[in-house]
């Protein structure tokens, strides 16, 4: 589904001493099946932006269009459930939303709310469970017996089982160990490729933005500071510094490498291993 923001502003608690404008005149388009990373300093409005996409927040002014749904302030009430069925959200620390007695019932919860046909539910649970790499035994356990990382996987399985057309990820790997982070990001990327899911990822890890995104949107103080392909965005270290963001380590390394040896290596999502090999080869040649 295509997502468009037209002149969207959002103010929390308007008309009180606490009023705070979190988004200012956002204009952006996310194409169908695109993978977009949203980066920015804490408080720059990333989560606020995301919550407009499934109607948790309605713009204070301007409008958001998601597929055929239009969200704007003047609009009469509509069935947001239809929208939320198609837009899956993995919140920050999604394990905090678990509440059911067993893992199975928790994964089932959203599907029942959205009236997925009964006979589809069980296969979808099994599929999602395999995707997040959990054993079948956990299904009967209470989610609260599991480790933090497993709970996170259960919560993610609940979202994936819905087979959403749009997947919204708000720092989905925060607080996980490095292997866990890698596994989860690879999973989302695979789903994005296999199902053509439009994916919007908020992340603090520039390496993830670089590795997975077709396009990066840089937010600062509620406005868009920059957008473009990872190559374009990371060619702009000054603007990045203005948004309080770092360069991805691998790009810094390649830049230093070029400075030191005068050899240019283009970053094409190589693994660290392949990159090291490539460096050694290039150095041998000279």
């Amino acid at each position: 589904m295509e997502i468009t923001f037209k002149d969207v502003s959002y103010t929390y608690q308007p008309n009180t001493p606490f009023s705070h404008q979190a988004l200012t005149n956002m204009n952006l388009t996310i194409r169908d099946q695109e993978f977009v990373a949203v980066v920015g300093h804490t408080g720059s409005g990333k989560s606020t932006l995301l919550q407009h996409i499934n109607g948790l927040l309605i713009p204070s002014s301007g409008e958001v269009q998601i597929g055929s749904f239009v969200l704007s302030k003047g609009q009469k009430k509509q069935d947001l459930k239809k929208l939320r069925e198609k837009v899956g959200v993995v919140f920050q620390y999604p394990e905090h939303q678990l509440f059911e007695e067993t893992v199975e019932r928790d994964i089932r919860f959203a599907m029942e709310n959205f009236h997925i046909p009964k006979e589809d539910i069980q296969p979808r649970i099994m599929e999602a469970l395999a995707q997040v790499n959990l054993e079948e035994e956990v299904l009967a356990k209470s989610p609260f017996e599991l480790s933090g990382g497993q709970m996170r996987r259960v919560a993610i399985a609940g979202v994936l089982a819905m087979k959403p057309e749009v997947l919204i990820l708000d720092e989905p790997t925060a607080g996980l160990d490095p292997q866990g982070q890698q596994a989860i990001m690879d999973l989302f990327y695979r789903i994005h490729k296999e199902r053509g899911t439009t994916t919007i990822l908020v992340t603090h890890q520039m390496a993830d933005a670089l590795a997975y995104a077709d396009r990066i949107i840089v937010l600062a103080k509620g406005s868009m500071l920059m957008e473009g392909t990872p190559e374009q965005v990371f060619a702009n270290p000054d603007l990045l510094a203005e948004a309080n963001l770092d360069m991805p380590e691998v790009l810094t390394l390649l830049n230093h490498f070029e400075e030191r040896f005068g050899i240019h290596i283009a970053y094409q999502r190589q693994s660290a291993h392949d990159l090291a090999k490539e460096m050694i080869e290039k150095l041998r040649e000279t």
């Binding site: 948790l56 459930k81 939320r84 899956g88 959200v89 919140f91 939303q97």
Partner: peptide, 13 residues
């Protein structure tokens, strides 16, 4: 607020 948003996204009304 956070949890009610998370559950609303899971279809709770």
């Amino acid at each position: 607020e956070k949890i009610s948003k998370a559950q609303a996204s899971r279809g709770v009304d």
